[in-house]
Amino acid sequence: MAAAGPGRGEDRPVRTRLAPYLLVAPFFVLFTVTGLFPLLYTGYVSLFSWDLVGDSPGFVGLANYAELLGDDRFGTALVNTLSIFLLATGPQLVVAVGVAALLDAAPRPSTGWRVAVLAPTAMSVVAVGIVFANLFGPRYGLVNAALAGLGLDPVDWQADRLAGHVAIAVMVNWRWTGYNALVVLAAMRAIPPTLYEAAIVDGAGRWRRFRHVTLPLLRPTLLFVVVTSTIGGLQVFTEPKLLDAQPGSANGGASGQFQTVALYVYQSAFETRRLGYASAVAWVLVLLVALLAWVNYRLTRRMAGVDG
């Protein structure tokens, strides 16, 4: 770095010229060691047939990726991941905006309420997973007991594919709705009161003000929430691992009916013990996340152009 060439830094002492680089260096060093290097190395490993305890990894080129295309377990995992993602993001967004609107409507902002809303986010995902897996127990679980109380048939959350996805989406929503509500609330607070005043003068009621003033101005924030949900939603791991009745299983249910892609990476690496194949799956996941993030980025820019 700090190439000594003709420029405005030439007459300054070296220390001053180096200082800014040194100040940002810790981030880049850390990122290279813990982020960039493993990422690239995983790509390198994905070109090998590499057993976890084997001694002679063999170079196979893109064979792992070719195999991935015909792997129906990977296809199932991909569909599961997208299904759980949709079930989690949609309701979460609606409820988050609703909760934010309620908090916003309160005459005096209460810290107590905000902390309460944020509390689930701060909890250990494993603790949440264990509690919810118990609640969704097919035979002795509380959810089914409640359903029976309402005169409904019990649901086998661990056997039925869609029910499993719903159970996992509920765990995800429970943890993240509050966090998103606070993000949305911050954006709501930033809307200039003059806009509402103008709308009131025009005779708009509470609902119309929300629908035609608040929501349009929230769009960029909502897109941010969608982007972060996308990145996280494609990596759901702990919830499906804990919903599985068999302790330690990475199978995502007896038939893989709620196995996510992240869980399949783990299974390929530590159960099938094919590190190369697992790395290939991980890389496809990275590309998928990048692709969706890019789509969202384009969307955000367009929306910003239209609205702002």
Binding site: S229, G233, V236, V265, Y266
Partner: peptide, 14 residues
């Protein structure tokens, strides 16, 4: 679920 790219990353590091 969100904010845990560390999971994939940690796996990669391991």
């Amino acid at each position: 679920m969100r904010r845990q790219p560390w999971r994939v990353r940690a796996l990669a590091i391991a």
